[in-house]
Each structure stands twice: as structure tokens, then as C-alpha cells.
């Protein structure tokens, strides 16, 4: 009998309200969600449906107004800013829409950056960073600064950076929004392959049907609520 996998992320009745009184906007309404180890889940929905807000809650970047987020069973509420930073560093990888690389660092240094924060020894750091870049198809471009890379290449660096510290989950917010269709296809294939080969868990907020095609689990949001949660 196959052992049941534990949830990496558990959202328990989380709500998020921006503003007060008559100006209050309910971005999330009582969300209950578990992300299980190995998931390649997409979070879809129209603009303003609460995808990014939910990703921010799961990524420990923001606090819910009520309810609880647990990462690996650890509740985020009550954690200090420093503890949240440590948690993000150790357990969560981020891929953002606008590539978000540090412009003054080379591709390798961008990837190494997370490892430096984790105090990984220099040789190992370099080996792992180069391996991660090779994994995303950027061998030979390690010393290039972001400005010397195409949008697709930059997003590959961002993926390498998100994966190099071997996080428990990778949160991607519209990772293909700025990319052409060919590059989008390549990146989706890449993320899917990484999920399949290394078992890395992905939760991807997206509008893009090409991303959703690969999804093993599709969560649809509307008006701050989960409308459907379907496993392929």
C-alpha cells in the first residue's frame, strides 16, 4: 500500500482583506487548500481573483487577515520577520513574472546568491550553481549579466535560482507572462521535467493554457475563493 504523502502547504480558512470599512476589499475568502509533495499544480483565475495574494500568503511574504498557513506543518502566524526570512530561504523557491534577477550579478552569482545566504561553502556553491544552470540549459552563459540574456534565458536563471537550494516548494507567479510562445513551451517543459525527475513541488499561478496543459492539478479561483480543485 502506498504511503499517503504529507501536505507541504496547508491553508486553513485563510482570508485577506485589504483596506477597512467601506473601502475593504476581500482578496481571499476562507481558503482551504493543501499542496502535496510532488504536485505540479496550477492556480488559475481571472485578474483580481486572488492568485497572487494566495501565493504571497503561501510564500510567507504576507500575512492572512484570518486563518492559518502551515508550511511542512509549521504555522507561519507568530513567526518573526527573521524566522519568515529563514523559512523562505530554506523551504520556498520563487519564480516571478518579471524575471527578477539582481542586475549587478552574473547568472551564476544570481543562482549562487541563495546558497551564499545558506552559508554553503564556496566550491560546493559554484558546483551547485553551475549544475543548476546546466539543468536549465544555460551552460556557457554563467558569467553573463541579466542585461546580456534574453527574457527566456533570464527566466531560466530564475528557475535555476529557485531550485538550487532544493526547496520544498517552488511558487511561480505568472512565470511565462512576458515570454513568447516558443520560450514559454520550453520553460513549461523544463519545469514539468524537473517536477517529474526530482519530484520538486510546483504551484504556478497562471493564465496561460500551455502551462495548464501540463498541470497535474488545476485549481481555479474566482473572487478570492477556490471554485474548483481538479487533479488530472
Amino acid at each position: 500500500m502506498k504511503a499517503e504523502k504529507k501536505p507541504i502547504v496547508s491553508c486553513k480558512g485563510i482570508t485577506k482583506v485589504f483596506g477597512k470599512d467601506e473601502l475593504a476589499v476581500h482578496a481571499l475568502r476562507s481558503i482551504d487548500l493543501d499542496i502535496i509533495e510532488g504536485d505540479f499544480a496550477t492556480l488559475a483565475g481571472p485578474s483580481g481573483s486572488g492568485k497572487t495574494t494566495l501565493l504571497n500568503m503561501i510564500g510567507a511574504l504576507d500575512h492572512p487577515t484570518s486563518g492559518q498557513v502551515l508550511i511542512d506543518g509549521q504555522p507561519l502566524s507568530g513567526m518573526s520577520k527573521s524566522q519568515l526570512s529563514d523559512l523562505r530561504l530554506n523551504k520556498i523557491g520563487f519564480i516571478f513574472q518579471a524575471y527578477n534577477l539582481v542586475p549587478v550579478l552574473s547568472a551564476r552569482e544570481n543562482v549562487e546568491f541563495v546558497l551564499r545566504l545558506l552559508k554553503v561553502e564556496a566550491n560546493e556553491r559554484r558546483t551547485r550553481a553551475d549544475a543548476a544552470l546546466a539543468e536549465v540549459g544555460l551552460r556557457g552563459l554563467e558569467n553573463r549579466r541579466p542585461s546580456a540574456l534574453s527574457g527566456g534565458q533570464q527566466q531560466r536563471v530564475a528557475i535555476a535560482r529557485a531550485l538550487v537550494a532544493r526547496p520544498r516548494i517552488v511558487l511561480a507567479d505568472e512565470p511565462t507572462a512576458n515570454l513568447d510562445s516558443t520560450t514559454t513551451g520550453e520553460l513549461v517543459d523544463l519545469m514539468y521535467r524537473l517536477n517529474q525527475e526530482s519530484g520538486t513541488t510546483f504551484l504556478i499561478g497562471t493564465h496561460d493554457p500551455r502551462v495548464m496543459e501540463h498541470s497535474k492539478r488545476h485549481i481555479e479561483m474566482t473572487d478570492g475563493q477556490i471554485e474548483s480543485d481538479i487533479r488530472a
Partner: peptide
């Protein structure tokens, strides 16, 4: 500002 947000998201502490 955005970059500081990014760095914080990656695990940079406020200090």
C-alpha cells in the same frame, strides 16, 4: 524598492 522586495523574498533579512 522592488529589488529589496525580491532580496527579502529570497531570504535576505531586513538587517
Amino acid at each position: 524598492t522592488h529589488e529589496f522586495g525580491l532580496l527579502r523574498a529570497l531570504g535576505f533579512k531586513s538587517r
